[in-house]
């Protein structure tokens, strides 16, 4: 976290509101700090990288992940809990023929309790408006071009169901450990705006 903007008017207004709420007994600043720390520790893109790497090396895990992700996660010590409500996670697999991309056209739905906050561009009207109508053009803005005959499937997340992409395992990674495989995965790969 950076303190760069803490002199900004909005930062002052947030602090002010927090103080008022604390005075009224509606908030506890210490509790807020603890919750933030716990969240930063628990919810990170690295969880997604681990899920992908395990799916690449373990067919049984992968089958379960694609069938019912929520029930597959405990096998690697993860869960969809910890947020305000437990959402269903649906993992969609990229294949030679089909590439998946996720979006939330209405707002910013994302598996946040598992992967941490989504990137700002994911929440931007530019991405949300365009990826459903011109996905290929949007992927190009990420420097990512797919063959013309690859079908692109766009998944629109909502309050109940969140999506994550399972990228294809890169070629030439046969000898790598699960940990090394996890290090190949990026957050954009989990959203579908990168190959991996």
């Amino acid at each position: 976290m950076s303190d760069d903007h803490d002199d900004s008017p909005i930062a002052a207004r947030v602090r002010e509101l927090e103080a008022v709420l604390e005075e009224k007994g509606l908030l506890d600043s210490a509790e807020l700090d603890r919750a933030l720390e716990a969240f930063a520790h628990k919810a990170t893109p690295a969880n997604g990288f681990r899920i992908v790497a395990r799916a690449w090396v373990d067919e049984e895990f992968k089958a379960r992940l694609l069938d019912d992700a929520n029930s597959a996660l405990p096998a690697i010590g993860l869960s969809m809990g910890g947020g305000l409500q437990v959402q269903r996670l649906r993992v969609v697999e990229n294949t030679e023929k089909v590439h998946n991309v996720i979006v939330c056209t209405l707002c910013s739905c994302y598996p946040i309790a598992l992967l941490g906050p989504s990137p700002t561009w994911y929440k931007s009207p530019a991405y949300r408006s365009k990826v459903v109508s011109h996905p290929r053009e949007v992927l190009k803005q990420f420097g990512f071009e797919l063959p013309d005959d690859t079908e692109i499937q766009v998944w629109d997340a909502n309050a109940e169901t969140r999506y994550m992409v399972l990228p294809r395992r890169p070629e030439g990674t046969e000898g790598l450990s699960e940990e090394e495989l996890a290090s190949k995965v990026t957050r954009n790969g989990l959203i579908g705006t990168a190959a991996v």
């Binding site: 947030v14 927090e18 709420l21 908030l27 933030l36």
Partner: peptide, 10 residues
């Protein structure tokens, strides 16, 4: 920034 995290946590 810190204030964003605080809005989220609040």
């Amino acid at each position: 920034a810190d204030w964003e995290a605080h809005v989220f946590a609040m």
